[in-house]
Write a protein that binds this DNA or RNA. Structure first.
Lengths: 340, 340
DNA sequence: AACGTTTACTTTATCGTTTAAGTAAAAATA
DNA sequence: TATTTTTACTTAAACGATAAAGTAAACGTT
């Protein structure tokens, strides 16, 4: 077993042909005869040739690589999304370079530079909750790299794939109202971020439709994390302003509410009821399982990959689209009825 | 805003120096004067220069990139591990190329080739549960790429970072026995895989120490997934061979047990008790929270990254080590005592 | 003043691949 | 049969960076 790294020219000299012939043969270029193509492929296989992507990128300006930037990895929504994106990318012969911005928009900017530096063919990004300035995409645009936003977005001019945040929330909150709830809180969500803003607007729309007056003491701003749900419920309790039901802007926020409820000895759904936007694979195991607005992560990943590849592979500039994936309210163990 | 991509030679010609001067200046090479270095850096910044990694790789044979291969992404253990590896890699100025083998060892082989093709500086891998042939590393070794195995391993000759599967299981099972449990089942785990094998051996060792005879009807082979736990409990029930306590080889397996228990109307811990190897961030939310053997994923990620970087950056060939991260039994809501 | 040394650059060659531009021989066409 | 076209290659050039080798000027040293 030789441990030299095999290059095109090794194969070429072995077969006494030029490297270009080898390169073309391996790519099934019509210039090369069937016979030679086969000979080259056999030799390549036998010699254990593995192409050098760096070299081919430099020459061909194509890496077959998609850069993926998420705010967090170890998070059930994002890890499902990453998996879905990874699988669909692979089916289409693209690799994934993954970076996480850890909800830090400075790091996010660096990640964008990294992607450009690594010459990814396209970028999929879900921005941090604090990113509210689309100027972060300046470099990307300057370098003409296709980009698609997913779930969390900031730039209206870009193609994006999102859930039906407004509609899903509207449906869930309307359902609750129709079941007899009226003091419904909206908890969590940075309202600069699209998902916070849109979910809030779905909530408000539902109140309006049912002629319930907006009560700002029941709308809590904040983040998308467990701690945000936790502190919100604590606050309601301390201010003696408990709502009948909490709409949690994400599943982690809902968990925070549950956690605070446990400490305060409030029973869900008896003392306080709960719905969340999004669920997790663990929802079946908690009691009661939270009723939620579903997020079809697999579909989101698939569509996002399709869109970015379409942008990469079509030479003309496609106009931007906003793909909205329907999100429906799923009734589980909470929000069943108002009253004991 | 020009939309040309800026290269070293653009900067060079702007400053009327050679590209080499620019290249060296940007890398703080001592050949270049303070003055010139500053001038170059300013120009680079102003012109929006972003290095082309493919080019520098080709020239310098270094990508500052680590390939990460996991069997699954959307899995709480692996997503935490990925996050930890990502963060520590970034701190050390390495990027991550992520691939998932989806528990498919053929795909795993392809992923290894991809990594070589992308010229990663080193590879971190957690093999699929079916990988039992270290020959998969043939190409990697031939290409002299440093590799470190994490958690799931197959090749004794490689450096690896693992949990104390034997010791952790031994501790947990011993605890259970001391609390009065004697019919303890071991569920899940492909016993070809190291984690299955070692956890089984910790279990057997605990039985032996406490002079409990091994009962093969209580040892269930299988995978590491929820379905495996589910079917195991169903089987015990149908065969009228319920154990007093189940040691689940992974947290998902434990969830499967819970799920089956729910269907069979068996209460945990009253009718059947449960421990798992590993937990999840959701464990606090299920009732009762499962007592488990802890896995310090962050530490595992950090050590794995340290080891692979050490291998990458030291020219001499380091001999292989096996780093064992201690794993301790953590008592939560299960396995408290035997008897009603 | 004559010499070696250091400083701060430049020139040249190379990494492994692909694209563009040849070219000789074979095949098709007139 | 003479000419054009096609086939199946090759040679040359390039992608953008870096490493190695070269060089002129400034600086030290005795």
């Amino acid at each position: 077993m030789r441990n030299q790294i095999i290059t095109l020219s090794d194969i070429a000299s072995k077969l006494s042909v030029s490297t270009v012939t080898v390169s073309k043969a391996l790519r099934n270029h019509p210039d090369i005869s069937k016979n030679m193509t086969q000979k080259v492929k056999n030799a390549a296989k036998k010699m254990g040739y593995i192409p050098n992507k760096a070299a081919s990128m430099l020459s061909a300006r194509k890496t077959n690589t998609i850069g993926l930037i998420v705010p967090k990895i170890a998070h059930s929504f994002f890890s499902s999304l990453i998996e879905s994106i990874y699988n669909h990318a692979r089916e289409n012969n693209y690799e994934i370079i993954l970076t996480s911005s850890q909800e830090d928009s400075e790091l996010e900017k660096k990640n964008l530079l990294t992607m450009i530096s690594m010459k990814v063919d396209g970028i999929l990004i879900s921005v941090t909750r604090d990113t509210n300035d689309k100027s972060i995409y300046g470099v990307v645009k300057k370098n003409k790299i296709p980009i698609v936003e997913i779930d969390r977005t900031v730039d209206d001019s870009l193609t994006k794939v999102v859930f039906d945040d407004i509609g899903g929330t509207f449906q869930a909150v309307s359902y609750a109202i129709e079941k007899g709830f009226s003091r419904i809180a909206f908890v969590g969500g940075n309202h600069k971020a699209n998902i916070g803003k849109d979910r809030l607007s779905g909530y408000l729309r539902a109140l309006k439709k049912h002629k319930i007056k907006r009560d700002n003491t029941l709308i809590v701003h904040g983040g998308f994390k467990e701690a945000d749900g936790y502190s919100a419920l604590k606050m309601f309790y301390e201010q003696d302003n408990l709502p009948e039901l909490i709409f949690a802007v994400t599943y982690p926020v809902a968990l925070g509410v549950i956690s605070a409820a446990k400490e305060l000895k409030l029973k869900i759904p008896r003392d306080i009821d709960l719905i969340s936007f999004g669920d997790s694979e663990f929802n079946r195991f908690i009691y009661p399982p939270i009723s939620y607005v579903n997020q079809k992560t697999d579909e989101m990943g698939r569509i996002a990959v399709d869109k970015i590849i379409k942008k990469i592979e079509s030479s003309e500039i496609l106009n931007s689209e906003k793909i909205i994936i329907s999100s429906k309210f799923i009734l589980k163990g909470t929000c069943k009825f108002r009253g004991k």
